[in-house]
Amino acid sequence: MDTILTFKNVNAGYGRVRILNDLSFEVKKGEVYGVIGPNGCGKTTMFNALIGLIIPTHGEIIYDGKNVTKMKANDRCRLGIGRTYQVPRPFEGMSVFENCLVAAVHGAGHSEKEGRRVALEALKLTELYDKREVRAGELTLLDRKRLEIARALGTEPKLLLLDEVAAGLTEAEVKDVMKMVATLKDAGYSIIWIEHVIETMVKSTDTLMCMAQGSNLVVGEPLEVMNSKLVEEVYLGGVEDDE
């Protein structure tokens, strides 16, 4: 399989605080790539560097054959990197439909007429179609998370970044999310998925990476990674104490 994304020895952070430490990994086209790791290990920072909200101080990010390390966020979006935020950040004053329309018009470069079609499709895929005229600020948490995904889909990404889309949801809702991710994978999207719910990650991902202190600790088959001693130590902090 081809590679869609490569991180090569990336250092990045906020101001003088360095969060990512020589981070390297590769994501293949069409796979669901899971990322786990303790709080503060740099998962979300990795996304921020990947979409261009922060610029690495060292190393390279290669997306789809292009070096995007220093590219602006909106240009990367045009190339097909779409993200969701851990804490949903809808455009609250706009309707659900308008949220996706912004993405389709600005992110995918459509006219408003064509964007309308793309936006509505994204809303159908994420089961928000019936709520399309509701103000985004009035949505429930699950629907906000759905809107995050819908808005990212509106940009017509090739690589979709999911930041804890299952966090804070009930078990039934998590299953909905897992189903949605499976649908997206079948539709051909490459996906990087950050999540804390380990069980979900083992079931839904093709490759799993565990991060610690801003770098790549273990990568491999999800089950393998979960069973690795290193992960136990750094992330789970002694499984035997847990249920």
Partner: peptide, 16 residues
């Protein structure tokens, strides 16, 4: 209108 609500989120969905 998107920018007014959240400039960072707007730029990550492609708004220049």
């Amino acid at each position: 209108t998107a920018m007014r609500d959240d400039p960072d989120a707007a730029s990550s969905v492609g708004v220049n």
